[in-house]
Amino acid sequence: MRPTSGDPDRQEVGDQSPSETDGAEQSEGPRPPGDPDYRFTLANERTFLAWFRTSLALIAGGVAVVQLVPEFAFPGARHALGVVLTIGGGVLSVAAIRRWQLVQEAMRREEDLPPTRIPAVLGVALAVVTVFVVVLLVLSLGRA
């Protein structure tokens, strides 16, 4: 997806740096040229929030594993799982803000959006956790 400004004649120029330095708080007063259409800004914000909720779900999942799941046959495995999920949530929220920033910058410069590996990494990590949990459950059954 390539966001466009309302003015096709506007040239790609290198004078858009002011918009990078003045932050979100100068709400009053028009934005310097270079800001993307408001719908793109808001879509990027909501995408960030979707990742942010994913990271909160990981953190809550970590708490849930410790609070609600009975102990596996291996003492400590449950808490280790909880810690892994919780730290994963923290890492994911940092990845989310980085992604938000890269996308916002790309839109400002009217470039293509940068590629992301976050979904792939998250998918692989969740698959690994799933296999780990299944193995733990099977081994726990064997010991019960």
């Binding site: 932050g23 709400s27 934005r31 993307p36 408001y38 800004t41």
Partner: peptide, 13 residues
Amino acid sequence: DGRTTVPDARREV
């Protein structure tokens, strides 16, 4: 120039 913008949510994010 016809563009409509909104400040980004830098501080909130």
